[in-house]
Amino acid sequence: MANKTVKVIKINADECNGCRACEAICSAFHATPKYGTTNPAKARIHVNWDPLRNLYVPVYGGPYVEAECLGRDRYVIGEKEYDECLFCRAVACPSRDLFKDPDSGLPLRCDMCEDDPSLKEPMCVQVCLVDALTYEEREEEMEEEKEKLDELEMGLETLIDKYGFDKVADTLARISISKQAET
């Protein structure tokens, strides 16, 4: 058992003004070079947005899924009806375009803007002056868990799902041979 800092972005959907600044800055922060491009379709946060139903639900890219789920439940909260998908954080879900890079199809997952030196708050929280997004850190006792997949591994997993392990392994081997031949 060990102490761990848990980073939390709290979402207050009632305060959301639907400006999508979070999407814009998220995509710019994760661009190479940093802030070099903006493209909300590459953001790791997405505001589910339906003004004429007064429906505003910001959601972050979370766990990677290989297949779409069976459930399509609907929730009634207040007087509004919400589709389950609206709250779903699944990254790269085949049933929708969210949290997938529009060019490569690779998954886009929130990393809390990890940076060196680290930021005081993730960028989406910094630009949200209406406080729909706020940041909290809390200490929690956690069981040691095995290292999470990093982005590269996650990307490779996606490619493996798409093309099969053998094809990806063959391609990597072929690239590494040709790179060695170049040098």
């Binding site: 940093k34 802030y35 070099g36 491009t37 903006t38 493209n39 379709a41």
Partner: peptide
């Protein structure tokens, strides 16, 4: 649209945006 918009001098640009914010 799902394409990129490019910025010529990203760090400087964002610095000004932050001041504006």
């Amino acid at each position: 649209g799902t394409k990129d918009i490019n910025i010529a001098k990203p760090d400087k640009f964002w610095e000004i945006c932050q001041e504006v914010l």
